[in-house]
Measured scan of single mutants.
Amino acid sequence: TTYKLIANGKTLKGETTTEAVDAETAERVFKEYAKKNGVDGEWTYDDATKTFTVTE
Rank of each mutant, 00 (worst) to 15 (best):
F52M: 01
A26E: 00
D40Q: 13
D22K: 03
Y45D: 00
V29H: 13
V21E: 12
R28Y: 07
A20V: 04
V29K: 08
D40T: 14
T2Y: 09
Y33F: 11
G38A: 05
G41E: 02
T55A: 06
T53K: 06
K10R: 13
D22M: 03
L12S: 06
E56Y: 09
D47I: 09
E56M: 08
A34F: 05
T51S: 04
G38H: 08
E56V: 10
Y45R: 02
A20Q: 08
E27H: 11
A20F: 05
E42S: 10
N37Y: 14
F30P: 00
A48T: 13
K50E: 03
N37E: 06
T51W: 02
K10I: 14
K35M: 13
K10Y: 11
E19H: 13
A20Y: 03
F52S: 00
T55N: 09
T51H: 02
T44Y: 09
V39G: 03
A26T: 01
E27Q: 10
T18C: 15
I6H: 05
T1I: 14
D22F: 03
E56L: 08
T11L: 12
E27A: 12
D46T: 05
I6A: 05
T2H: 08
V39P: 02
Y3R: 01
T11A: 10
A23P: 11
Y45F: 07
Y3K: 01
G14E: 10
G14W: 15
A7F: 15
W43G: 00
Y45K: 01
A23T: 08
E19D: 10
A34S: 04
V21L: 12
K35N: 09
T17A: 07
E24I: 12
I6S: 04
I6P: 01
A48Q: 11
E56C: 07
T17E: 09
G41C: 03
I6M: 07
K31V: 06
K31M: 08
F52R: 00
K50H: 11
A7Y: 15
E42N: 10
T25K: 06
Y33T: 04
Y33R: 03
A23K: 15
V39F: 14
T51F: 02
E42A: 11
V54F: 13
E42V: 15
T17H: 10
A34Y: 04
V29P: 00
Y3C: 02
T18S: 04
T49V: 05
E27M: 14
R28F: 08
K13G: 06
G14K: 11
G38N: 09
K36V: 12
T55F: 09
A34W: 08
V54M: 06
T17W: 14
T55H: 08
E32L: 10
K4D: 02
T49P: 01
T18A: 07
E42G: 05
D47C: 07
E24A: 14
V21Q: 12
W43I: 03
A23Y: 14
T2N: 05
D46Q: 04
K36R: 13
V29A: 08
E27W: 15
T1P: 06
A34H: 02
W43S: 00
K13R: 12
V29R: 09
L5H: 01
L5T: 01
R28W: 08
A48D: 11
E42H: 13
K10H: 12
T44S: 13
V39Y: 10
A7N: 05
A34C: 14
A7V: 15
R28C: 08
D46C: 08
E24H: 10
F30S: 00
T18W: 08
Y3T: 01
V54E: 00
T53M: 09
E32H: 08
Y33L: 08
W43Y: 02
L5P: 01
A7Q: 07
T2C: 13
K35E: 09
K31E: 03
K35V: 09
T44I: 08
K50R: 12
L12R: 05
L12F: 15
T51I: 06
E27K: 10
D40G: 07
E42I: 15
T25V: 08
A23F: 14
G41T: 02
Y33S: 02
